[in-house]
């Protein structure tokens, strides 16, 4: 699997992401500077977490309009798998690759903690190694992770089986008490209509290391490595 991790000014989780991809696939991704305009030959493109352009305008808004994102969109249209995590998810919504928006956390504070996710859509290329209803524990680290979309959009996402993760507790309970940032319907991650563009707020890349005692983000990267191995 050949992968690219996009680097914007202010991106800061590229190392974590590159480590996770290397652990799952045995191959380190290329780090691609945001001024590049072509993204040819990659099986996976990742927009990692951070504070692109300082998040000073609206999270992801500046990066969403950068030249490299046109190349990401082109690649997605060709069927290349695209993963956006945290600020990357925000950027993917800004580009229109994914619907909705990420608002400020309901608690008005930055949240960094391990939390539980309930897997819903379990399909290639991102989540075929998970089973529907499976609960995994991964970290979040965000200030604007409160997923918002109108009811029609949410109904469509649910109807089309495009909700990938929802916030829950260890027992898999999904309700207001397990919704850590106010996201509508506890949504933590969604895919586009093709299923090949995934955006999620939590950081599975920070749970891929037995040496740190956290490995439950690994199935996602193993899914990707498995799905894209022959490509």
């Amino acid at each position: 699997m050949k992968s690219a991790v996009i680097l914007f000014p202010g991106t800061n989780r590229e190392k974590d992401m590159a480590d996770a991809i290397e652990r799952a696939s045995g191959r380190r991704p290329d780090i691609v500077w945001h001024r590049e305009t072509a993204l040819d030959g990659y099986d996976l493109i990742v927009v990692p977490g951070g504070f692109s352009y300082g998040d000073y305008l609206r999270c992801g808004a500046m990066a969403g309009n950068s030249p490299i994102m046109r190349a990401v969109k082109d690649a997605a249209n060709r069927g290349v798998a695209v993963l956006g995590v945290c600020n990357g998810f925000q950027i993917l919504t800004e580009t229109g690759l994914l619907p909705g928006a990420l608002l400020r956390n309901a608690g008005l504070k930055f949240i960094c903690k391990y939390t539980h996710l309930k897997a819903e859509r379990c399909a290639p290329p991102f989540t075929q190694r998970l089973t529907p209803g499976q609960v995994t524990e991964v970290a979040v680290a965000h200030n604007e992770g409160n997923y918002f979309a109108d009811d029609a959009t949410l109904d469509r996402l649910e109807g089309e089986g495009r909700i990938v993760f929802r916030y829950c507790d260890a027992a898999g309970r999904v309700d207001a008490t397990t919704n850590l940032n106010g996201s509508r319907r506890n949504i933590a991650g969604i895919v586009d209509t093709t299923g090949r563009v995934l955006g999620m707020m939590p950081h599975p890349e920070d749970a891929t290391d037995a040496g740190l005692g956290k490995t439950e983000g690994m199935p996602l990267f193993e899914s990707v490595a498995e799905a894209l191995v022959s490509a």
Partner: peptide, 14 residues
């Protein structure tokens, strides 16, 4: 307090 600090970034926090 510390849940408002990103204590995991870099993926090396033992």
């Amino acid at each position: 307090i510390w849940e408002q600090y990103d204590h995991l970034i870099r993926g090396e926090t033992r």
